[in-house]
Design a protein around this nucleic acid. Structure first.
Lengths: 170, 170
DNA sequence: GCTAAATCTCTTAGTGACTAAGATATATAT
DNA sequence: ATATATATCTTAGTCACTAAGAGATTTAGC
């Protein structure tokens, strides 16, 4: 009973997450920038002014790749490079708000759709969703670390991993 | 008040979704396959036996790219190609369960983390989350379509798009 | 039934974002 | 002062992707 609920939930979340990725791809397409470029714009919105190295860390790209990303974004006028005066090795990247706005507008359909969905929930329920989203984030973050640590554990030394059946047969 | 809640929620969901993408990248990395290859494996799990064209549709890749994806996956023994006997133009792709299992195991850290998160919620609450996930999926799907239709609408004819402020200043 | 148009996958040539390795510049430690 | 560490950039090479179209099969119109 509860097991079925959990499985449905997992599947539903996978689906919506995959569709979210697809939305992002479409945005990047329309904006005429690469996928990773858009992802970095997103991070810049969430975290504000960040260093190139931090972008590499968060995206999982190499610093070399980030140089390319920032080059392209800078050329498109979407971001600015600013050397840190205190530590002149560092380069801060920040968005150019006026230009970035045009990309932000491409998220309007998404915002409208979400507004509509959220509209059906009470404040109380939204707080539950928020709590879940935050805990989910922490969980995924921890899982990512766990997976990474699994990499350099030889298979025979790995803790016994029991995979749940992934999909009920339709 | 509610506006702040909605904004927090949006941001939390964006964060967790981004981290989810990163988890997927790590899985692909560990499994030694390309990102899109893993995405297709995922779709094959969710939808079962699907045609090459359907994969292109769902992933947003061209059919040419899908040929490459399936070539690599087939070479790795993860999927099989089967011509449809009724319509011999079609090619069905299906996973080879024994081989795919090894990739499935890489999702165990994620499953464990999610189990832990879900554990803190009652059945009632999980049903709320499920409802939200399903409605969210439909919303994102609709938004994707809306965005696509925006592409071939000349900017001056577009409905007035009011972008909400994306981030509260920290 | 026969031809034309449509549908589905694959092929080919070319492009561009990515990695790995190392160069450069600056900062910190002994 | 020298060595080590840190942060970004450069370079060469690789690989997945797109666009365009070919090949194979099915569907539609006459």
């Amino acid at each position: 009973m509860r097991a079925a609920l959990l499985q449905d939930l997992e599947e539903a979340m996978r689906r919506s997450s995959a569709q979210g990725v697809l939305y992002g791809q479409t945005v990047a397409n329309v904006a005429g920038i690469a996928n990773s470029d858009l992802e970095c714009m997103d991070i810049l919105y969430l975290e504000g002014r960040v260093t190139a190295g931090r972008l590499a860390e968060v995206t999982g790209l190499t610093t070399g790749a980030i140089t390319g990303v920032v080059d392209r974004l800078e050329k498109a006028g979407l971001v600015r490079r600013e050397r840190d005066e205190k530590d002149r090795r560092k380069v801060f990247i920040s968005v150019v708000p006026e230009k970035a706005m045009k990309i932000g507008e491409l998220y309007v359909p998404m915002q409208q759709a979400m507004e509509k969905v959220f509209g059906a929930y009470s404040d109380e329920e939204l707080r539950l969703l928020l709590r879940f989203a935050n805990e989910g984030y922490k969980g995924v973050l921890a899982a990512t670390e766990a997976l990474k640590s699994l990499i350099d554990t030889p298979p025979e030394k790995r803790p016994d991993l029991k995979l749940k059946k992934l999909r009920r047969q339709p």
